[in-house]
Simulated assay, not measured.
Amino acid sequence: MVNMFISYCQKDEVYADNIDLYFKDKDIVLHRDIRDISSWKSIREYMQSIRDMDYAILIITDNYLKSFNCMYEILEVMKERNFQDKIFPAVVEKSIYNSPGRIKYITHWQEEFKKLKVEMNKIDDVINAGSIIDDLKRTQNITFNIDEFLGKIADMNNPSVQDINESIENKLREKGLLNDEKECKLIKEKDVDIFSKLDIPKMFLDSEPTDLEKNKFMANSFSKINIMLGELCEQLENESGSIQVKIDRVDSRTMMYEFYRNGSQVRALKLFLGNPFGGKEYSISISCEQFSRGNNNSFNGIFSPKVEKGQLMLHSILSISGQKTMPVEEAVKEIWISHIKPYIER
């Protein structure tokens, strides 16, 4: 088993959820705060455990680079010799690839250090501020090391966030840490093929995907859609001086996108995973409201699972161009063009 630590800011948990789901049934143990820190346990001890892992996945966002806890985990990783050999960066904040972008985070931590120092000086007896002094030292340490860290990350040939799961899996296979799936399947069939021993036909094994397989596919698709929509929104904000996007993860199955032009809301979009009409299969539903969060009773679009040519795909039920089946990337394109683009361009 390969032990991997997911280092991320909780505001960006959609990325961690996607990685979590992908590696769920593989020979990898993913260590994540929501599972590994039980009630009243030390958060700092958990963060220090990152050094004990085989690898660490770093979900590098703006929130991540401004988080004290996330940067503390980075300081722990950097204690390892050649630490870049045991990290898999998933770079969402692409500004770090240029000097002005990296300078922004260096100056951020310089300011954080100054502010904490000013606040600490308000304490009459510094002896009574042991933990504050420790935080001050760690903040200063972040200030000293963040340039080196960002420089190392910027120099790595990092795959896109959409491809991070497959890239990690391929790298682990190259190192011989994961068995080839086809090989595992052959070994399993050879060892436990009781159907052949009893001369029972196995044609039914290649039939319609199970409810569990369909729901896993829909949950994974939901995560991927939100990751790509998040990247589109980020690029939109960077390229437009008037459009701002507020993304809110309501819960693990509901994402809210609010679009503003010069501070005035022009569109609200809600995506939620579930089975709104009952039944066993999950669907991904879209609800659009002009100025409010609305509820889950108004549907502007629905994607359900459908098998086409032996492969699970997304089936758009309420598409403007009629019902059709598509991969995740095309579903994101349809959501953007049909439910977002016309309203932010008015």
Rank of each mutant, 00 (worst) to 15 (best):
I123R: 13
Y22K: 05
A90S: 09
D147G: 10
S304N: 08
I19W: 11
I103M: 12
L273A: 07
Y64K: 05
S283T: 15
E330D: 13
M1Q: 07
L116S: 03
G151C: 09
E189Y: 09
C9S: 14
Q48D: 15
Q235T: 12
F299E: 00
D125M: 06
E112C: 10
A90N: 05
F303Q: 03
L75F: 08
S298K: 13
N141T: 06
K202W: 00
S99T: 06
S223H: 14
N220K: 15
S240V: 09
K41I: 01
S167H: 14
K224E: 14
G176S: 07
N141F: 02
Q84V: 14
S223C: 15
L30N: 02
S39L: 14
I164L: 15
Q48M: 13
L271G: 00
K214E: 01
S131N: 11
E239H: 09
F299D: 00
M313V: 07
E329C: 08
I317L: 14
T143Q: 12
S321E: 14
Y97Q: 04
V332H: 07
S252D: 14
I227V: 15
I133R: 15
K137Q: 08
V266Q: 10
L116P: 00
N145C: 08
M1W: 03
L65E: 02
D20E: 14
I37H: 03
I187C: 06
L314F: 09
F5C: 08
M156W: 04
I34Y: 04
N170T: 13
K246Q: 04
G230V: 08
I123N: 05
N300M: 10
